[in-house]
Simulated assay, not measured.
Amino acid sequence: MGTAIATDGNQWAHYMTSLRASGRFDGGSSIGTGAVFRKGRANTAAPTVVSGFLRVRAENVDAARAFLVGNPVYEAGGTVEIRELPRT
């Protein structure tokens, strides 16, 4: 993965500006390291590194894919997950 691109502050600023301009950005945050807890078992480090999340409003997962364009991690060849949240 092109780490320099994925962590470039200017790339992120440009991407975040485009998300805000879409009118569908609902926030996000970086996320620190984690641990997995199971009753009766030893605690272990979280197996997957999740560096943060962005929340956008989209009709479905396919519509959310449009927000991948310009994402520095995605553009650098990294992995970006799209998850649907329950509707309230």
Rank of each mutant, 00 (worst) to 15 (best):
M1D: 03
G2P: 05
G2R: 11
T3L: 14
T3A: 15
I5V: 12
T7S: 15
T7L: 11
G9D: 05
Q11T: 07
Q11R: 13
W12I: 06
T17I: 00
T17R: 13
S18Y: 01
R20H: 08
R20S: 10
R24E: 08
R24C: 13
R24Y: 01
G27F: 02
G27V: 00
S30N: 12
S30Q: 13
S30E: 15
I31R: 01
I31T: 15
I31D: 05
G34I: 08
G34K: 09
A35S: 11
F37N: 02
R38M: 04
R38D: 08
G40T: 03
A42H: 06
T44L: 11
A45F: 01
A45V: 06
A45L: 04
A46I: 08
A46R: 07
A46P: 03
P47G: 12
T48A: 14
T48S: 14
V49C: 07
S51A: 12
S51T: 09
R55Q: 11
V56P: 00
A58C: 07
A58E: 03
A58I: 09
E59M: 02
N60Q: 06
A63F: 01
R65F: 06
A66Y: 03
F67Q: 04
V69P: 00
V69D: 13
P72E: 09
Y74D: 04
E75Q: 10
E75Y: 04
A76R: 00
G77C: 09
G77T: 11
G78V: 04
G78P: 03
G78M: 01
V80D: 04
E81I: 04
I82P: 00
I82K: 02
R83N: 05
E84G: 12
L85M: 13
P86I: 07
R87C: 04
T88F: 09
T88A: 15
